[in-house]
Design a protein around this nucleic acid. Structure first.
Lengths: 141, 141
DNA sequence: GGAACTATCTATAACTG
DNA sequence: TCAGTTATAGATAGTTC
């Protein structure tokens, strides 16, 4: 669509490439707006030029986030799960640590010790005696 | 571009709308591919028709996630931060709980008690005595 | 460098089987 | 209803200022 037919391959000349980018980018955004209005479609469009410049179009009444939520659901692809996964794993790790401390604390308070084997009871007793000794020592000061 | 000029407003006739959607959707995707090749651009394009059907195009050598990362950085808009925030808060909460237990445990073991006021030392001593009593009681069984 | 022009190409609205 | 065709509107490559 122009004075001459062009092959669809990278435009080597930088300024031509930038000019063409600018024109076509506007063209695509216009088309995106049109299909939105004509066909009740929802569109999310993000374009980066090779210079790094970004433009975006998103149909009115939605946000990129909305579109991406739907994208996420329908495509089955994971956009942010990977990021979530790290956080979730961190939570799991801390919770486990938490649980272990909870149990240790209860044991030290003499709770839930019915099922403990004899050996662990002895370890527990020693720990308590040591702790008590330290506390009494401190109080004596 | 067609046999007659059309206004850019919603096409009321359903089947016409669907036909137009299908044609224009393909057109936009073609244009997106072309600008990608011609201008070294990176494009992420997601289109939902009013029927809910989704199509996407993303320039080769990147993923939607890549594009969105860049979008995220450059637009300053938060795409997934809101989703992450809850998880982050949860982590904070658990870590705090964790710290408190850590401290309590250390105290029970007689560690880090130098700065404790007298009153707390007494509470600690009582807790230790109670725990010890329970443990000895259990060992006697 | 960018805005405007225009000849030409492309996309597509309406049509057809 | 759907793919294929065609006439025409719209997009744009090369050009000009």
């Amino acid at each position: 669509m122009g004075r001459g037919k062009i092959e669809i391959k990278r435009i080597e000349n930088l300024s031509n490439r930038q000019v063409t980018f600018s024109k076509r980018r506007n063209g695509i955004i216009k088309k995106a707006k049109e299909i939105t209005v004509l066909c009740d479609a929802h569109v999310s469009l993000v374009i980066f030029g090779s210079s790094g410049k970004m433009v975006e179009y998103c149909s009115p009444s939605t946000t990129v986030t909305d579109i991406l939520d739907r994208y996420h659901k329908q495509s089955g692809k994971r956009l942010w799960d990977a990021k979530h996964e790290n956080l979730s794993k961190e939570i799991e790790r801390i919770k486990k640590e938490n649980d272990n401390m909870q149990i240790e604390l209860r044991h030290l308070k003499g709770e839930d010790i019915t099922s403990l084997p004899h050996k662990e009871l002895m370890v527990l007793e020693e720990a308590l005696e040591t702790g008590l000794a330290w506390v009494r020592d401190k109080q004596a000061c």
